[in-house]
Structures are given as structure tokens and as C-alpha cells.
Design a binder for these strands. Structure first.
Lengths: 153, 153
DNA sequence: CCAGGTGGGTTTGATTTTCCAACCCACCTT
DNA sequence: AAGGTGGGTTGGAAAATCAAACCCACCTGG
């Protein structure tokens, strides 16, 4: 069955939501950009890595760039669109640090240029307030968009 | 092979990164909390949905609550930890709206309590600045954590 | 009392993906 | 020429997904 709900969350996940895709982006952001590094650091089987990279390049999230000819060698770099996905990774990391770990066994700490440890917050860019569930209201813009589903009121 | 990199991003994805899990959360946040609604609105096969829900409940992201006895009926509600994952979904949605669509065919608009459309931004909670890749520095806290991988400098 | 409907699943068997190891090729180094 | 490295491809076994059918408890209408 197809996802009956038109939605940018679903569309984005269709692109980067497969196993390893976001881990590949993590590595690329950290600076590990070559095939063998990506395979080692993500744990992805090499054939799967090949298909994930192809998809991310086709979608314009990564680009394949030569860093040497003779011998031909290349690496995968984030595009501007790809860089914006780092926000998703930071948010995921923060959630895991808070809920999957007891304090101070965090495997990685990100430092912000302001000098403090990065504790990312998702805010409303209009008012600057932190996003809380009870402050949000969803407005469907397209058909097929009822809360209860196709058959209900 | 196991993921050789200890990382909260990987751990969080291991929990909510399987196909349909985040779509289930989307629906729960929107208010569709019953098995049949979730199956319809996410497109997940019912058996897969069963295993995803079990996992999310076991992990403390959702809870199964009775809204009627005789007949026994229940729904899946987000826990406080689950609610915090809404930030991830908002960030994914914003990315998809920006990069996967031409303006104004967005299937959903979220309104913030401040009265404006929610355009979420990920910010540093210490300084309030928006998170940009070049402002971040990663600090490994655990072994196995070099940029280039186990065999490199 | 029986027929049908609804919520919430489980079962079955076919189809896809993933996985892992091995292999391949071009190029470099010794 | 022998071996190493980067960057993959190939083959077959194992695991996950899929759709449809089935099941059960409970309710409702006739």
C-alpha cells in the first residue's frame, strides 16, 4: 500500500530514512568522506553503501568530487541542501543523549562556536520560542488530510 | 557487521529509524492514535505496524492506554519522551518543504501559538544562534572515535 | 437469537532487501 | 612481478516486508 498521507516528513524519510543513510551523512559531516571510511564507520555492507550513496547523490544531498586523478580517487561531499540535514542529526543526537543514556556516557560532544557545548533546541523562527507540542496546530493544505483517516469525519 | 561508532544518533535511529516508525509518531502527534487509523494513514502493513508499536511502547516512546473497557479499546499515546521526538519530525518536514517541493504545494502547515506559521530552526540553547555546520566542532568522548576510522591516524 | 460490523490484531506464503564474502579492476609502490 | 589501496560488483543465503486472509471478542439491529 502507498502512504495515503501526502507529507513532507514522509517524502524526506523516503529519501534519507533508509538504513544507513543518515549515518552516512553523520560521517560526511564529521569529515569521513571516502568509500572505505564510510563502510567502516557506519557498518554498512559495501553493496548497500553503494546504493545509498547513489541515491543521495541523485537527490542532490551529496556530491561526488574527485580529490585526485591518476589514480582516480573521489570523495562524497555534502551539498548545501545536505548540510541542512545536520539539524536533523543534531536533534536526533540530543534525544538519544537525553533518553538513551545516563548522564556523562555520551560518546560525542559537539561544541558550538559560542564556546558552550551544543544543546540544540528547535525553535519557532518567528517568535524564537522553543517548539512544544501543545503550542502547535496542524493545518492540512491538501486532500486526504483528515486526522482520523479517509473514512472518518 | 556492527556499527563500529558508538553514537547517540545511531542509537536513536535503531529505535525510531525503521520504516514507518516516525510516520506512526507523526500520526500520534496529529491525534490519530488507534490501530486502524495508524495502518491507514501511514500505509504500514498491519503486521509491521504491530511490531513497530510494540517496540515504541517497550522503549517508552508511546504508551498503550485504554479509552474504553467493555468493549476493550485502546489507543497509543506519546509519553513525554515521545513528545520530544516531535522536534525531529518538524525538522524533517521543514527540510522536505524547502528541498522537495516548489513553494506553496506544501501538504501541511503548522501554526505556532505565536500566530505565525512554524518555520522551525535548530539553535544553540546556550547562545540562541542558529546551528550552522561551520560553527560546530565534534569532540569524541569514547574510544573508536576517530574521523577517519579504526585504521587511520 | 442470529447476521453483520468494528477494533485489534495473527497467520500464511510470496516478494524484496539485506547481508557477507568473494571477486574484480585500475593504479601505485617496491 | 608482487603486493597494496581505493572503489566498487557479484552470488547466494538469511532476514524483513508485503498483501490478503483469517480470527476473536464484543456490540448492534432485526
Amino acid at each position: 500500500m502507498k502512504d495515503p498521507r501526502p507529507c513532507s516528513i514522509a517524502d524526506t524519510l523516503a529519501l534519507v530514512g533508509e538504513k544507513y543513510s543518515l549515518l552516512v551523512l553523520r560521517e560526511v559531516f564529521l569529515g569521513a568522506r571516502r568509500f572505505d571510511q564510510l563502510a567502516r564507520n557506519t557498518g554498512a555492507p559495501r553493496d548497500i553503501l553503494t546504493t545509498r550513496l547513489r541515491r543521495l547523490v541523485d537527490a542532490g544531498v551529496l556530491e561526488k568530487a574527485a580529490y585526485s586523478e591518476r589514480p582516480t580517487r573521489h570523495e562524497y561531499r555534502p551539498t548545501p541542501a545536505g548540510l541542512e540535514l545536520e539539524a536533523v542529526l543534531m536533534t536526533l543526537m540530543a534525544w538519544g543523549d537525553r533518553h538513551l543514556r545516563t548522564d556523562d556516557d555520551r560518546p560525542m560532544v559537539i561544541e558550538h562556536i559560542c564556546g558552550h557545548e551544543l544543546l540544540p533546541a528547535v525553535t519557532c523562527s518567528a517568535c524564537g520560542g522553543e517548539v512544544r507540542h501543545e503550542d502547535l496546530t496542524a493545518h492540512p493544505q491538501a486532500p486526504g488530510w483528515t486526522v482520523t483517516g479517509p473514512t472518518a469525519a
